[in-house]
């Protein structure tokens, strides 16, 4: 690879990280501001209580769905950059990079699909409330419980952070990121427990399946975007002299 090619590649990767950040902000605005699903509606709502969530402000909600569908794959560009950066550090066939990339893409489907399902719920809001309730619960459980997909994606990041042959100060995967990711991994087992509870801290609107993973996911996203940009900046500095 020529110096120029390497430089272009880091520039593309930097663009992808920023694409994730911009799309993530768009998603947050449509999810929180337009769909108004933050904080989540309690899991114990009856059909009569759920129907108005979609019937009132129906157009605003559906505009939120449109932007949610446009930005729902926000994690994909970042996932690709993480995989490229992992492949740089792995020896031989970059198995962890492939696993991380593929599970990241599959995981993003479970951010995107619930938006579409809520879109269906709002599409014919005047239908029988029981029908809306089914699709509402389907969307929410699909949004919360697939957290359990994350461990496979995170495992490779942890392995690379602890086995890499470059100093922490220059790396896209410092050891502290390995530990933060390990925390994320341990937390992600809490999601599926939401299937068992309708009220309290273990329900989908509670501390365990929603608030803790949500806060940690936001912190992890900020951290890994930062370390990717940091690693890329260092690689760009090296590019003209090296290779």
């Amino acid at each position: 690879m020529t110096d120029h090619g390497l430089y272009a590649s880091t520039r593309t990767q930097r663009f992808l990280v920023w694409l994730t950040i911009v799309l993530g902000v768009v998603f947050a605005i449509s999810y929180m501001g337009l769909m108004r699903f933050f904080p989540p509606p309690p899991a114990s709502l009856s059909a009569e209580e759920v129907a108005p969530l979609y019937a009132e402000h129906n157009i605003r909600f559906r505009i939120g769905v449109i932007f949610g569908l446009i930005s729902g794959g926000f994690i994909v560009p970042l996932t690709i950059v993480i995989s490229i950066q992992m492949a740089r550090l792995e020896k031989g066939v970059p198995v962890w990079a492939i696993l991380q990339g593929l599970t990241g893409v599959v995981g993003s489907v479970f951010i995107w699909c619930p938006v579409l399902i809520w879109g269906v719920a709002s599409f014919t809001a005047e239908r029988a409330p029981e029908l809306t309730l089914i699709i509402h619960e389907f969307g929410w459980l699909m949004f919360i419980t697939p957290l359990s997909l994350f461990p496979m994606q995170l495992l490779g990041i942890i392995v690379v952070a602890f086995s890499k042959d470059e100093p922490d100060s220059q790396s896209a995967f410092p050891r502290w990121l390995g530990y933060l990711t390990a925390w994320q991994l341990v937390q992600s087992f809490g999601g599926p427990i939401a299937v068992l509870f309708k009220t309290g801290i273990f329900s989908w609107a509670g501390l365990l399946p929603f608030w803790a993973p949500f806060a940690l996911f936001c912190a992890w996203m900020v951290a890994i975007c930062y370390t990717m940009l940091h690693g890329l900046r260092h690689q760009e500095r090296l590019a003209p002299a090296g290779a």
Binding site: P174, R175, W176, G178, Y179, L180, W183, V186, L216
Partner: peptide, 14 residues
């Protein structure tokens, strides 16, 4: 090492 306490204190806070 210092980093592991992100995980440990994090989990204990949770």
């Amino acid at each position: 090492e210092a980093g592991v306490w992100i995980l440990l204190f994090g989990e204990m806070t949770f």
